[in-house]
Computed example of a mutant assay.
Amino acid sequence: MGGLIFLGVFIFLVFIIVAYFVGVYNRLVSLKNQVPQAFANIDVLLKQRHDEIPKLVETVKGYAKHERETLENVIKARNMYTNANTIDEKLEANNMITAALRQLFALSERYPELKANENFLNLQRRITDIENALADRREMYNFSATAFNTAIEQIPEVFIARMLNYKPFPLFEANEEDRQDVKISFN
Rank of each mutant, 00 (worst) to 15 (best):
N187M: 11
F12M: 06
A93Q: 01
F120E: 04
E153K: 15
R138M: 08
A19Y: 15
A93F: 03
D129K: 08
T86H: 02
H66I: 06
A161Y: 01
S30Q: 13
E72A: 12
L46T: 00
D178I: 02
I152R: 07
N132R: 02
I87Q: 14
E72M: 12
L91E: 03
K167P: 00
N33Q: 13
H66K: 11
L171V: 12
R179T: 10
V29A: 09
A100N: 01
R126P: 00
V44D: 09
D181E: 15
F21K: 07
G62L: 01
T86G: 02
A145Y: 04
E69R: 13
E131L: 10
M1T: 11
Q124T: 09
L114V: 07
Y141V: 05
R78I: 03
A161S: 05
M96D: 09
I5D: 10
A147G: 03
Y25K: 03
T128K: 05
I16F: 15
T128S: 12
I16E: 12
E176P: 00
E176A: 06
I130G: 00
G2S: 14
K90H: 03
R137S: 12
A40P: 04
G23A: 08
N73T: 03
Q103E: 15
T128M: 06
V29G: 08
R125Y: 04
Q37M: 14
P54C: 07
A100D: 00
V29W: 09
F6N: 12
K183C: 07
M163I: 11
I160R: 07
T86A: 03
Y166A: 00
K183F: 08
A133I: 02
E69K: 15
V18I: 08
S185P: 01
Y166R: 02
R102W: 07
F10Y: 07
D181A: 14
F21V: 05
N175Q: 06
E72R: 04
F120I: 06
R179W: 06
N83S: 10
M96T: 03
S144R: 14
G3Y: 15
T146E: 10
F15Y: 06
N33S: 15
V24T: 12
K61V: 09
L4F: 09
K183G: 02
N122Q: 15
E153C: 00
A19C: 14
